[in-house]
């Protein structure tokens, strides 16, 4: 069991630092964002299982092997309140750490999803009141706001794509179709679930820079995936122009239009809100415009089949490996 524990520990360290760093720095994910997304999820899941598994295996050494028997023995000893001979302080510490890390990650995941769901419901209520359906199309809402905004609100059975009046004025019909297809891709492919999982991982380990990198990388990949979906509806140039136009307009939005926004919202309660409709803060990396436009202007070949298969095999091995080690130990 000690070798298995050491092996899992090594995997955990590799997946916690050098591997995600290399992936975040590499350029091929822009070519096949879907494959890269699978790989990121495999790394995150496998890394977590390896880390917890390594601690668990080490802590269970005095309780005997294999893993199942060790857990049964631990259960029995917990009831009687005794420890088997040869149990050192580090074993107990490792067990505690495994338990703590596991519960922490799971509870955080749960909390993130519950919080997002509550916000989504609240947002949905407001959207239903504040927006009008677009040409009778179900799930499409238009909100009266000058900023060119498009976003989607995922939700089982009643997801919505929200466009602002500002956006409708800014883009022509083809560009609009591109934006709508992009948002529809988010909804169809359930991107918010992946995003939430990585958000939860990051918020569970805020001191861990790789978690932040992973979240940002995944957010950008998801946007690229949605772009690829939109490219099936419109040509690359139209989509690139749509992205650029919205990007320009949002960047130029803050200083000039605040007075206009104020005029729209005379209520004192909202004055402080409208003043900073768009602040000059750096954008979230998911909304980085350049990498997305670059791959539209200079189309890159998707990964060759062999490379895709290789990456997917690695992902499968990453998931299966730690599990096998854990149960063989």
């Amino acid at each position: 069991m000690i070798t298995a524990s050491a092996l899992l520990g090594a995997i955990a360290v590799l997946l916690a630092w050098p591997v995600p760093l290399a992936l975040a720095r590499s350029h091929w994910p822009a070519r096949s964002p879907g494959v890269a997304l699978v790989l990121w999820q495999a790394i995150a899941l496998s890394g977590g299982i390896s880390m917890i598994g390594s601690l668990l295996l080490y802590g269970l050494i005095p309780f005997g092997s294999p893993l199942r028997q060790g857990i049964v023995a631990l259960g029995g000893d917990l009831r009687t309140g005794t420890l088997p001979s040869g149990t050192s302080f580090t074993h107990v510490l490792a067990l505690g750490a495994a338990l703590l890390l596991g519960t922490h990650l799971l509870l955080n995941l749960l909390a993130t999803f519950v919080r997002a769901e509550r916000q989504r419901r609240r947002h949905h209520t407001l959207i239903t009141l504040l927006s009008d359906p677009l040409n009778g199309q179900p799930g499409m809402r238009v909100i009266d706001h000058p900023a060119p905004v498009a976003y989607c609100l995922p939700g089982a059975g009643h997801s919505a794509t929200v466009l602002s009046n500002g956006l409708l004025r800014l883009l022509d019909a083809d560009q609009l179709r591109a934006v709508i297809a992009h948002e529809q891709a988010h909804l169809v492919q359930q991107h918010h679930l992946v995003l939430l999982a990585f958000k939860s991982w990051h918020s569970a380990l805020p001191w861990f820079p790789i978690a932040n990198r992973a979240e940002n990388a995944v957010a950008l990949l998801v946007e690229m995936l949605a772009d690829d979906y939109a490219r099936r509806v419109v040509d690359d140039h139209t989509l690139a122009r749509a992205i650029a136009l919205v990007g320009f307009a949002l960047a130029g939005f803050a200083p000039k239009r605040t007075s206009e926004a104020d005029a729209l919202a005379p209520a004192a309660a909202s004055a402080s809100l409208t003043h900073e409709v768009v602040s000059a803060k750096p954008e979230h990396p998911a909304y980085q415009v350049m990498p997305r436009v670059a791959r539209l202007v200079n189309p890159v070949q998707p990964l060759r089949h062999a490379a895709t298969a290789g990456a997917l095999t690695v992902s499968a091995m990453l998931l299966a490996g730690p599990a096998l080690i854990l149960f063989a130990a």
Binding site: Q119, A150, E183, L196, F248, V278, S279
Partner: peptide
């Protein structure tokens, strides 16, 4: 539009400013 990470959890936006 505001970069409040918590409040953005529920939605996926098209694009930000440049």
């Amino acid at each position: 539009l505001e970069q409040v990470p918590d409040r953005q959890a529920a939605l996926v936006r098209f694009i930000g400013g440049v």
